[in-house]
Design a protein around this nucleic acid. Sequence first.
RNA 1: GGCGGCGUAGCUCAGAGGCAGAGCAAGCGGCUCAUAAUCGCUGUGUCGGCGGUUCGAUUCCGCCCGCCGCUACCA
Length: 528
Amino acid sequence: MSIDADIDISAESAPKKDIFYVTTPIYYVNDVPHIGHAYTTVNADFIVRYHRLAGEQVFFLTGTDEHGQKIAQAAEANGVSPQEWADRIHPRWREVWERLEISYDDFIRTTEDRHIKPVQELVQRLYDQGDIYLATYTGPYCVACEAFYQPSEIVGGLCPIHERPVEWIEEENYFFRLSAYADRLIELYESRPDFVQPDIRRNEVLSFVRSGLQDLSISRTSFSWGVSIPWDPRHVMYVWLDALQNYTTAVGQGTDPDRFARTWPADLHLIGKDILRQHAIIWPAILMAAGFDLPRKVFAHGFLTVGGKKMSKTSLTGISPHLLLDTFGSDGYRYHFLREGTFGQDGPFSWESMTARYNADLANDLGNLVSRSLAMTTKNFDAVVPAPGESTPLEDALLAAGVLAAEQMDERVRKLDPAGALGAVFEFVRAVNHYIDDTAPWKLAKDPAQRERLGTVLHTVCEAIRQISILISPAMPSASRRIREQLGIGPVDSRPLSESVISGTSLVGVKVTKGDSIFPRVEVEKPA
RNA sequence: GGCGGCGUAGCUCAGAGGCAGAGCAAGCGGCUCAUAAUCGCUGUGUCGGCGGUUCGAUUCCGCCCGCCGCUACCA
């Protein structure tokens, strides 16, 4: 026990993990952003903003993956160097994230020194300890995929994905001993069922690993646009080996031990289901080899479908985030992709359903609630929130509904159910509209004897809108801000919802300003 | 072929061994403060098909039909 006590003392001085760390994938600068990318990032931002709102310390990372053959090819086709190409494309991503109000704390680019150096150090270490070895690999290779295939997969000499001829390549490659980690990976999935979520993805990963793992080819000599292998510069790293490490290099891997200790492991790697294997198998194996802690959770969401079909690249790029942003704004955009469908499963996307949902929930229910409430406050009390008189069971019930919404939201965000979380908030919005109908303040206003009662009702409504402005802030930061401006109050505090939502009568005497509609209705016609 | 998932109201989806649910859309009514808004009321569903276990299954099991995912490196 005395030995333990000594350890405790030293542990006390060492920094401990105290930051909630969320990542998105880093996006390939080969592509311009489409709504699928934004789907991942918007959901991550919602989760992050919620945790910040609840008063937690958070670190939110996104970025761009800038190495690999496809980028070299794209650069060449455009007559510039790969680095120039990456420099030119990567702002396209930042622009979209700006417009979508993505509150990332850091944006990492894999071509930055702060990334490359620690990556090389770690890979060198894995080589030195025997996790990486040299071997000759021969097989069919698709340039577009940047990947070798199993001979059995090649149909008629064509790549199964791109349907173009594969090249038969013999290459001297470095390999990572992925197979050596199979047992530990299986143990990981079994002992921590939450590591890979949803369950269906966990099952896929588990059965894949159980079927046996081959070692992973982690270097290329056929092109040079990548992080070079430090002990053998003829080779550059396979993009995933480089890219995955963004999650650790961004938080101090090999450069800032204190920061690393406070941030790593990631609490959540949010990804699309297409890159599940890299995150659920390769990445943990690399981390095991490196001796780092493993992420707490890898969550793979589903894809958007269009017209009931899997979204193709062409249909995806056909729907630009900018087009939707022009019509619905960042709030409408974010709301739709958080609220519609079940996170984790594939879900349909259509302009019609997005418009319908926007008008029903945002314009009619919430926007109009703000509008009617502030109009009545303006008309009856010179735009100053009145002091409440005695409350009735109606007020008590509404207060309880607000508290319930906050509780349910908390529970559902932590279960990674954004749609459910917002569902709870909008149930409260409906309850407030209902309350106004029940109390009929426009009738009270006609009877001078009911002046105090009218004050109670309008105070209660304004207070409820204040609560709503807090609850929607992770989903719709701009709308939250605009509502609070009209209410005459400042930005949302960062503290537990139980405190901020239930904070009583702070609005009395505040001057409100009925401004522009928070959510103007959108016509159904889709722009050409 | 192997492993797994899905099939519930017009649409998107919840659900659970014991009287079938929500939101949207639709219809009717109320109200008039508000963004033709809000509030109330109203449906129809052989809960994919056929068997089995059970006092009782849409929920558990088997088979079948139809979609889909994974099966070595595409958000």
